[in-house]
């Protein structure tokens, strides 16, 4: 039997995108972007603070890093929790040592479980919402009311620790359903870092107004490089250093500001045999301070607006 005729119809074949969320645009054809003090390179470091429940329901799908063994999967539960007890403090020390700042994307449930930790982080950098927990993946098949509840619960749990309303979002597993952007905009979220299709912020449409999308590299993420690709910690460090050097050289050659983003997971890079490689990267970046500006997401967005 042959396929339905729709397999030979191309309804969305037109110049640009096959959807209306954002406009087609090539990085190199945009007007030159200038970072504060005319630095060629900007650096955004984000640390994702996560809670993996022992009893994941896996609505939508199971986020990477989830339980894989039969219940109760104590090995993965406790290894993820290691990040919130031990690993994050190694990252905070490394940031302090090299005088770098980071933002913190935090699961709402972490604020309920570990208020001590969230209080400490709120004093160190900008907070963005990272969904309720690592078993609340926004994806097709999840009820609208469930998605809305996850978003509202997350913002409410984090609000206690922040003086300003939370405007940023990084979804668990960076996943979205078709309605997630609307729900985020409706909840007062201004920007989101789920899509990994660019190296600079861009406008994204929702029925409730614009939602800026910020780049946050997946390919350079510790969990992705080490956990999915099984590259060594040394390789992870080398890849970040190569990326920093490449972006800096490109920015200088083209006269366009470039942005290096790092997303860190304390349960991955906070391990004692790995943290030294993050420090090696931080040292490399700190040495380039005369050519680099270290911004949080709000600073980044402001710089793009004013450029």
């Amino acid at each position: 039997m042959s396929l339905d005729d729709k397999f030979l119809r191309y309804d969305k074949l037109k110049p640009g995108m096959d959807h209306d969320r954002y406009d087609w645009s090539m990085l190199e054809q945009r007007p030159a972007l200038n970072w504060p003090d005319d630095k060629p390179l900007a650096l955004w470091i984000n640390v994702s603070i996560e809670h993996f429940p022992l009893n994941p329901k896996g609505l939508g799908f199971k986020a990477p890093g989830n339980m894989t063994m039969p219940y109760p999967d104590l090995r993965h539960y406790s290894l993820r929790d290691y990040g919130n007890r031990v690993g994050i403090f190694r990252i905070l020390e490394a940031l302090e040592r090299f005088d770098l700042t980071a933002s913190f994307a935090i699961n709402g449930e972490v604020a309920r479980r570990y208020p001590y930790l969230v209080r400490r982080l709120a004093g160190r950098g900008e907070i963005l919402a990272h969904g309720w927990n690592m078993d609340s993946v926004h994806a097709a098949g999840v009820d609208e009311s469930t998605e809305r509840q996850w978003i509202n619960d997350t913002l409410a749990a984090l609000a206690d620790f922040c003086s300003d309303p939370i405007r940023g979002w990084l979804g668990p597993a960076r996943s979205q359903s078709n309605r997630t952007p609307e729900l985020l905009a409706e909840a007062g979220i201004h920007w989101c870092a789920d899509w990994v299709n660019d190296e600079l912020p861009y406008r994204f449409r929702t029925d409730h107004g614009p939602l800026t999308h910020l780049p946050l590299s997946l390919e350079l993420e510790d969990r992705f490089v080490i956990g999915d690709n099984l590259h060594s910690e040394t390789e992870y460090g080398d890849q970040l250093i190569d990326a920093a050097d490449f972006l800096l050289a490109e920015a200088q050659a083209l006269g366009h500001g470039r942005l290096l983003t790092m997303n860190l997971h304390p349960w991955v890079i906070g391990q004692p045999h790995r943290i030294g490689q993050l420090e090696r990267v931080f040292a490399h970046l700190a040495d380039r301070r005369s050519e680099m500006v270290n911004l949080g997401p709000s600073g980044l967005l402001a710089a793009v607006e004013s450029s």
Partner: peptide, 8 residues
């Protein structure tokens, strides 16, 4: 187990 942060 309960929460016991590394810096405490």
């Amino acid at each position: 187990y309960g929460y016991l942060p590394w810096d405490q």
